[in-house]
Amino acid sequence: MIGFHIKKRLNTSLGETQFQFDFEIQKESFTAIYGESGAGKTSLLRMISGLMKPDDGTITYNGKVWFDQKKNIDLHTGQRKVGFVFQDYALFPNMTVLGNLKFALSKSADPVIIDSVIDITDLGELKSKMPDTLSGGQQQRVALARAIVQQPELLLLDEPLSALDTVMQQKLQDYLIKVHKEFKLTTIFVTHDITQIIKMADQVMILESGKVVKAGKPTVIFGQSLSGKFKLSGRVLDIYAEGVINIASILIGKDVIKVVISGTDPLSIGDEVVVASKAFNPIVQKVGE
């Protein structure tokens, strides 16, 4: 279990903000951190990993103190059992894919882990390639594999899928869920994509100007009180009146669907929404191979 109780004053895109985080995260959970830019999402990951020093407070992991301002404890990032996947991947350009993975292996670790990570992330054919010859999705997979080779107990991902197209995002989400389960990781990932959160996370924390304003199950937080059996999340592209009704175009995945909305819905273009239905008969059909 991670206990995180810190204060930090930071300059963000929204000006100087006083961050104050108090929360606990259960072992082997998959937690999403959601919030606008400047809310402190990335800083939060950096403080957990030891790349940024909080001004005050404590960080504990499974009873072990990683940071305690009063006792002057600040464990070096290499001594905390974290794997960090950076937003721009940060692969070492001078090393092959295999070289990147080997560099991440700690000296006391069994190299067998490299083979099993390569297996799970399907990197076999890319082993001897240099990072700058890989596509964005492949680089992301290498970055994920490299973090796993470190055998972390805590996996931190900073907007890991934001630079990828929708199809690639789906694939990587599957890889992420796979490694999370396979290696019994505690995973924390930063995102501003509700779809990803609903698909992967078992809890979500919403940050606003340096504080956790809401936390809980994603379906509860984003689905509010609906008990719909069929639920999709998307973004409002357009709202227009047609006769006596209003219609919203909503982007769900790659598809745009049109939904009738009531005139009193306080929706505006750009909103993240959940589209749900309680009673209807969806037709499920296998897509032609």
Partner: peptide, 22 residues
């Protein structure tokens, strides 16, 4: 890129190793 250095730090590498190998 500072990220390269930080990535190596999370892997527990010393500053000397990071200088020579990254």
């Amino acid at each position: 890129s500072v990220k390269l250095i930080e990535a190596a730090q999370t892997m527990g590498r010393t500053n000397w190793e990071i200088l020579i190998r990254v």
